[in-house]
Write a protein that binds this DNA or RNA. Structure first.
Lengths: 102, 102
DNA sequence: ATACTATATTACTTTTTGGTAAGTTATTGC
DNA sequence: GCAATAACTTACCAAAAAGTAATATAGTAT
């Protein structure tokens, strides 16, 4: 570990504490998605931010990236086991928002 | 609501989807804290970011702010009912990080 | 040979975030 | 009357994040 964390929540926030990562992970809960499909499930995310977000999630071993050697390219993203371990939390966050919005 | 959300998780992330807010909320789980004490529980947060974070949490009704009319000033922050409803999630996020770090 | 496809990457600019340091307040204690 | 106190607030600047638009790739279909 490069950085020192004063508590484990701090570590968690460094991994998924931004706006887009939980959304990307959430949309992968039902199984792998092609890059383009995943991106379209998240209106408002720019091309650049999408790529950057999945790159970081891949680096942190929360999603895996599978490239099919075809043309035009086909790339699929799916949750790793670590990513899947966030399932309950992601659904609770979604539900919490649902209750609060209504 | 000003913004349109395409899913409730998006709404959640707009409320608490940054690095500091979950940390502030987490440290208030055990009860109200004075401003200075709360700030010191979060090493690395600057004065400005701290103030800004609690202001936004207050605006969004996740924490309440109680000012005691004394000199020097005394200000306490505590979770609102809405803030408390995040307790389980915050603890799970902390635990998730704990497992992953070790 | 040109256009089309999906998935990026890059350069450039704008916007947002964050840090530092100084100032504010109003009373008490010296 | 001056310093000390807690909790800000502000101005200024630097750094980081994010948006836009152009470009790359390499087969296949026209």
């Amino acid at each position: 570990m490069k950085k020192k964390y004063y508590c484990s929540l701090h570590f968690t926030m460094d991994l998924i504490g931004n706006k887009w990562k939980p959304l990307v992970l959430f949309h992968l809960l039902n199984g792998p998605l092609r890059s383009g499909v995943l991106q379209k499930t998240i209106p408002g995310i720019s091309n650049k931010m999408f790529t950057q977000t999945v790159r970081e999630l891949e680096r942190d071993n929360l999603v895996s990236r599978k490239v099919y050697p075809v043309v035009p390219p086909k790339v699929e993203y799916q949750l790793t086991e670590t990513g899947k371990s966030l399932e309950a939390i992601l659904k609770e966050l979604d539900n919490w928002g649902k209750n609060l919005m209504s």
